[in-house]
Design a binder for these strands. Structure first.
Lengths: 208, 208, 208, 208
DNA sequence: GTCTAATCGAGACGGTACGTCTGGTCTTTCG
DNA sequence: CGAAAGACCAGACGTACCGTCTCGATTAGAC
């Protein structure tokens, strides 16, 4: 079934008979997928090319992934997950702003933007891929953001009673809107504008 | 070169020699594209199928459109442009909310959501299509929204000094985020939540 | 039905209503067919090209000829018929040899060889064309040759009792064999060799 | 690159990696080509039809042959090469006559005549095909015939000093002329007439 | 009524990516 | 240590779509 839904870690798997899976092949496939992905997106990326470029048989790819979408998903998660963390210190609103800025900065780099954009596009006609993207990439960041918003409300940085989910939609939605539709640039200033809109006073946190 | 960038109206074109373009064929192609577009999106829609279903030759399609993306673009604009207008009456913020709600309601209907989502997805690896979508669909609505926000600020419904473009990004971005990424429902209540977030007081317009 | 079987002469046709057929167009079509015919043969010659090159509408071509084969047939007959006559003077065998040499020499020129070769090829899957080629080109020359052979027998230049048709087949067959299959050159010497084989003694005609 | 120029034998090819070529597919393609070839010739034979009829993919055909002409060439050689041998016994002239009669008889059968005629026709606008036909079919038979003529001269059955190549052109040219141009029948008697013309005395071989 | 111009439906063309499959080789672990 | 269990590579296979092309018919206005 492949690894669209994660669990792609390659463990020693003690005691199983037969030749073990080649970690070298796996890495080569993911690297090839990243390298060959241009702005032509997933449709411009062929499994044959990935196989050839990785020095791997096509059958090996299909043994472990259901298709190129799943390969790219693994390649993306593998490369990007560590670079979009929330910062540990600071007041809640600042931490939220910093993480948003990290996302924005990452998406300015083609090597991160391209796979993400390709996966969102592919997700529109591939429900499995869409679900995988939500579960493996979106969900955890969203949970963290929701917690920060709750904290910011408690700290008096945001009005009580606002809909945290709608707020998250607006902040990340604005980024993704520029990314996917308008093509406008994602600058640090822009992120600051967004935060200002939802927290007009820009008040410092109330001391606890 | 096709009509990706608009100007697809079919005028009598007085006095031009040669057999005139068949309006029947054009309509049949657009209708077929709409009908055959499932959730499999553009990749699941084939030019051969459109041609067969429309009772039209493939060559006729390629004579007038550069590819299936352009066909779908015309079909979408043709069908949807009149249904997302801004209302004529009411205070600025209300008019903005109503139009947002119209967009939300339209995108709940598969026959409008599917082509839009497919076009956004295809735009990720087809710059011409992305530009056409911006120019023919996004731009004008964005201009109207920007004017309404300016009016709302003047009327005292929104804080002065806020970045109108960032605000638009957030409102529409939130809708499109749900549409393209989270899959969460687009309800009227949701739209109201969005408006409340950016206009917390929900104050009535200051009389002029 | 067109003119595959001849009768392409264009008469004044007194008193017929309507615009008369354009002799200019007819000539332009035939000329274009000749000029555009390369060694790619009939399949490499398109009706659109002929029409464009002749400054004539495609419809005009289809009005007067059933297809490009018929056009080429007319073009070939029109251009070549006068150049393969039998000489008027000399003893029968010499006259036969001279006409054979004329055929050989003509077929060395691309502008005559190409249409002929193309017509023979097309005739293999187009019985009408094959019949037209026989009736309009082959038959009359064959009749003349048969008469000459009869005369040569009477004159003692050829053995009595030989099968004139088989002899014609051999002489022209040898030429066409080189033309169509082996590609070997058609020289005057070669023609002389052929005559020598069937008239070994090469005796002069017996005086009458 | 295909097999227009022969060497189409399919050997076990020990130890080559990858899935071996399917002999079943190859045979099915050749058989389908033969069966679908009507008097409409090569132009009336489509690659799609061959593929469908052979239960084979179009891609497989294009993988191994450059086009339908090459397929038909293989099909023809494959089917016919064993049926046009020269006899082993008899005096040289008789052996020549018998082989000529075999050719004539074979060409009376549609299943042999059609591909041959189609290949000659196609060869007129496809130099590769023409060369392949010469090299793989014509050449060897011509060599044998030349040897027989030399032998016949030595045996006193033919006049010394005649041009063997011209003679071959005449004999086979007469057959092909009837086949390709005049459409006259190819009977055993006709073959005998041809031999008589070039060996008037029809003398038995001089004992060695 | 013929002319040019331009469109139309039909369908073959040669090519390409997909995802599957067949051979044969190589690397482990278990008996 | 020798089998069996898998994974591996190479590459051919059937399916299906692509975008282009030619054909021959058709529809208009111009002459």
């Amino acid at each position: 079934m492949g690894s669209v839904r994660g669990m792609d870690d390659i463990a020693p798997e003690q005691g199983k008979p037969g030749r073990p899976r080649s970690e070298r092949a796996r890495q080569a496939v993911l690297a090839a997928a990243r390298e060959l992905l241009t702005d032509k997106g997933l449709p411009g990326l062929t499994v044959d090319d990935i196989a050839a470029h990785a020095g791997v048989s096509k059958a090996t790819i299909y043994r472990w992934w259901p298709g190129k979408g799943a390969v790219l998903m693994d390649a993306f998660i593998d490369a990007v997950s560590t670079k979009m963390e929330f910062p540990a210190d600071g007041d809640p609103l600042t931490r939220l702003r910093i993480q948003l800025a990290r996302v924005a900065r990452l998406m300015n780099e083609p090597r991160a933007r391209r796979p993400f954009v390709a996966l969102v596009a592919a997700g529109q006609h591939d429900p499995e891929l869409a679900a995988a993207l939500r579960d493996r990439f979106i969900a955890s960041r969203r949970d963290s953001a929701r917690q920060l918003i709750t904290d910011a409300v408690e700290a008096g940085q945001l009005s009580p009673g606002l809909d945290a989910d709608a707020l998250i939609d607006m902040l990340y939605g604005a980024l993704y809107y520029r990314l996917l539709i308008s093509g406008a640039p994602l600058t640090d200033d822009y992120v600051s504008h967004l935060i200002e809109i939802i927290a007009p006073a820009a008040r410092p946190p109330r001391p606890a």
